[in-house]
Structure formats: structure tokens, C-alpha cells
């Protein structure tokens, strides 16, 4: 099970949008195999760059409002938020080096 904090439709404002940190939201679901595959990779990136980026998870089954608001049509979808705005979207499970390259601007 992932170490990442679970966020919900109700907590999204406080946990993500109002946060001063750079936050990556992993939109996922139980039935999504690629989501399970990428989850430990996101955990590893979060723990290796704990001072740079925080990873949280949003279960799209339980939290349809945020999944709809952010126009999710494919998971895993990883959206990086800064100051309440989406500044990066990465879609699909990718190997760690590829994800690190996608997120390079936030991890440096």
C-alpha cells in the first residue's frame, strides 16, 4: 500500500489548492492495473525528493467531482499543482527514468 496521503473531493481545496507546496496528485482507481504498477514509482520519487514535491492520491471512484473537474479520461493521471493551478500533467504509467524526466523541472 502506498505511503502517499489520500485526498478527497472534500479535502482537495485544503490539501492541494491552498497548499504552499508543489503537490502531485495521482488520480487512480483500484481496478486500474497500470495505476498499481506506477504507485511504488511515485512513492520512490516522493521520498527521494521530499523537499521538492509531495505526492497525494485521489481515488476517482470515490471522488468523481475532482476527476470530472480536471477532465480525467485516462488513469493513472498525475497532475502537478502549484498555487492552486495545474502546472504539469503526465498521463499513463511510465518507468521511473521517464517520469523523472517529465517532472525534471520540479525535482531539480
Amino acid at each position: 500500500m502506498s505511503e502517499a496521503k489520500a485526498v478527497t473531493d472534500d479535502s482537495f481545496q485544503a490539501d492541494v489548492l491552498d497548499s504552499n507546496e508543489t503537490i502531485m496528485v495521482d488520480f487512480w482507481a483500484e481496478w486500474c492495473g497500470p495505476c498499481r504498477a506506477v504507485s511504488p514509482i511515485l512513492d520512490a520519487i516522493a521520498s527521494e525528493h521530499a523537499d521538492k514535491i509531495k505526492v497525494v492520491k485521489l481515488n476517482v471512484d470515490d471522488n468523481p467531482a475532482m476527476a470530472m473537474k480536471y477532465q480525467i479520461t485516462s488513469i493513472p493521471a498525475m497532475k502537478v499543482f502549484r498555487g492552486g493551478q495545474v502546472v504539469k500533467t503526465v498521463i499513463g504509467a511510465k518507468p521511473k527514468p521517464a517520469l523523472e524526466a517529465d517532472l525534471a523541472e520540479f525535482l531539480a
Binding site: A29, W31, P34, V60, D61, T73, I91
Partner: peptide, 17 residues
């Protein structure tokens, strides 16, 4: 448009349609 309506995986993405 991959991941924005174009998909190769119905079991992953069907839920959103």
C-alpha cells in the same frame, strides 16, 4: 490526444466515458 479521449485500454479508461 492520447489520454485526452484517445485510448488503447478500455479497461483502464472506459470508466470515464
Amino acid at each position: 490526444m492520447s489520454g485526452h479521449g484517445v485510448s488503447w485500454c478500455a479497461t483502464c479508461d472506459g470508466f470515464f466515458f
